[in-house]
Design a protein around this nucleic acid. Structure first.
Lengths: 225, 225, 225, 225
DNA sequence: GGATAATCGAGACGGTACGTCGCGTCTTCAT
DNA sequence: ATGAAGACGCGACGTACCGTCTCGATTATCC
């Protein structure tokens, strides 16, 4: 900000531990350490003291940025969230034909199905369980909590909402649908199985859920004699 | 040390524990105190020391029976579970006509709807949130955890399974249905909204979910021209 | 052992208590266990629970006889006290000539010297330290405490008193002597070194102490005709 | 910041501990509380929890400095030791003529006598008993234990050694004396009576002990020219 | 012989204190 | 004037023993 306008992110010399550009480095170390702790021992092993020790950082440095260990964990998970890829990419990867309910599905419904599989994949992993748990356990009104929920749940939900809207506009699903209800109908069972653990979260199950939901909300279901 | 080898027919009564039996009174006081703490401050205010102090009990007395505060909370919630009433009773209480999808529903579907409303009511309360949270947060493999999940989730789920079976047998829902998937489709959205908090869990929502699910799984949906 | 029912410890006294008599066997097991614990871990490892567990005995059985662990330890040490042998026996065993102050000593002083060596030997052992510690640490007014002190300290002291009286009567020591002070002068240094640990308690030291006590440390004492 | 390599005479001070230094205030509060507890209830009423509560301090703050309650008690007694005054001061205060053995004593022996009386006075008090007990009960090899013994026993003993050396150099006591033995002969009876409690520790007794130690108890010692 | 009674083992009870861990705040020093 | 290091007051943890109190079973004496 003073004489050199670009001093900040200067990192051509890796041996520059001279001054104190430690801040960014510290942040990264903190999030990395937290991520490792999460992966190793789950949410309950994330403590401020543990993070500070592993990151080689003072506790106040952590508290300067986050209010508690929960928040650091959230930040670490958000930072490392690799699931931001587009639904197209997901659709491409999981290029399965997918069991069709009764008609050939549009690309919108195909993408929705792919997204569901992707969600199941991500959240079945160890860190995914942490995410779900943290959403469930967090106070619902903090800023970070909302951001977290937004990134991990609502972003996908909005993507799904777009899929449904597309499907609606091309006549694949009913026009009188309450999309929020429909979205819950589709996404909820995945998390339900994850959390309750009463039955495994298989790929088959996801297809079944979607088929069942579709037969309810699709226009084909409305056909009456 | 009498060496005479006269083996008495001393029956060791291997089933009955030796020593002073555990105090029912203490157990009750502990669970009552825990229940109060849960209701007042939520899951995080349930500490062994707090329970012991409020129940007028020593900490070791608690640890003798439960391994940690989480387990005591589970036990307290299970003990005080007043939701064991029959679906008939629930149906009677919530004697609403319920918005019908498109036909007059059988008593089975009516009971299912009543049960869903009841579940939403119970789990929306403060203690209900605790229950959900504890299910989500608990290690899945302990004995108590399984019992807890069984009592609060699977018991209702089994009741629901009976409803669906009845509805299936009288032709209201499709015979080719995977009931486990259908059950998740119906119950999951309730808990999803509870945990995620992205939208309120209204009575209207429950009806909507059920209607939507029914239109997917009911035979009327299969009618094609 | 079993056929004669009266051999055991049947007392003819009609005021014998009603119920089941206390088990001698249990008492022995308790004292044995306590003794082992004392030898293994010192005074601090003697706990009622530890004794009960090792002796295969219920805790109330211990409390029925002794008021606390300290008392059991005292009893165990008193029971196992092998130092009750006569000074004559000791004198016989440690038949050393002993460095004489300036004259040939009477048998009384020889016996005193032998007793001092014996005391040092016994109290230098692990259990001896326990004894000293317990005397020092015990409340001074209990019955058991007095008995303990009496057995381990005063009995020897009284023996020593007899030695000094004999020596006095045959003119070896001064007649105007306060024997209690003289006894303390002789016995105290042994325990002092044991407890303070500032210097080792050697056999040489004991001889030196006795010689010095006999002769005095002032130059005036050495003058001879 | 980096061009001038050592503008300041910054010493690396590798010995100085990093981080926040320990609070002198807390330390003082802890020792004060411990001292009060010792005075009120003796050694057994010194508990970490009690100290923490009375000092308004957290338990870890205590454990950060001392390993157990015993050590805190030692530190408290050492800190509050008011007996460091010189023997001259003691001699001045207790300006008694002192019963002379047979000659007018030198100032060295007078000072020794005064010191003995002072020791008896200090150790007869409640806290003095604690000190003796703790010396007796403590493991002998810890650092603190040695320091404690050094302060309370050996310091006085060294003073006494100086007295004896002075008396020896001016011909009052024998030159062939083993001073360590002589010191034990003089100091031991005081502590012996304190610990054993078989007889009171009177002022008279102290004089008697000193006289007897000086003269010896044997008849041969009384011969004068 | 049957009732009575004290003892036995076992172990749960209400407690106290232990020594540890983590919290979130603070203070100090080095950069 | 920021950041690491770490001590602080605090609160809860889970454990070890305390000394007391049931339990059912086991011996003895007395009626």
């Amino acid at each position: 900000m003073k004489s050199p306008p670009d001093v900040k992110n200067r990192r051509p010399s890796p041996d520059r531990p001279r001054g104190r550009p430690r801040s960014l480095e510290a942040r990264r170390a903190i999030l990395k350490a937290t991520h490792e702790l999460l992966a190793e021992g789950g949410l309950s092993s994330v403590t401020i003291e543990g993070i500070a020790a592993r990151a080689g950082v003072g506790k106040p440095t952590i508290y300067r940025t986050w209010p508690n260990a929960h928040a650091v964990a959230m930040a670490a998970l958000m930072e490392s969230d690799d699931s931001g890829e587009s639904a197209a990419a997901m659709s491409r990867r999981t290029a399965e034909p997918a069991p069709k309910p009764n008609e050939r599905p549009s690309s919108a419904l195909t993408a929705l199905r792919a997204q569901l599989h992707e969600i199941a994949r991500v959240f079945s992993a160890a860190l995914g369980r942490c995410v779900t748990l943290m959403i469930a356990a967090s106070e619902q009104d903090t800023e970070l909590s909302k951001a977290f929920r937004n990134q991990f749940v609502l972003a996908r939900r909005n993507e799904g909402r777009a899929f449904l809207a597309a499907a609606m506009s091309n006549g694949e699903i009913r026009r009188d649908l309450d999309i929020d209800v429909a979205l819950d109908l589709i996404y909820a069972p995945v998390f339900y199985r994850l959390l309750m653990g009463h039955a495994p979260l298989t790929s088959r199950f996801i297809d079944d859920v979607l088929n069942l939901a579709l037969q309810g909300i699709s226009t084909t279901a409305r056909r009456k004699p």
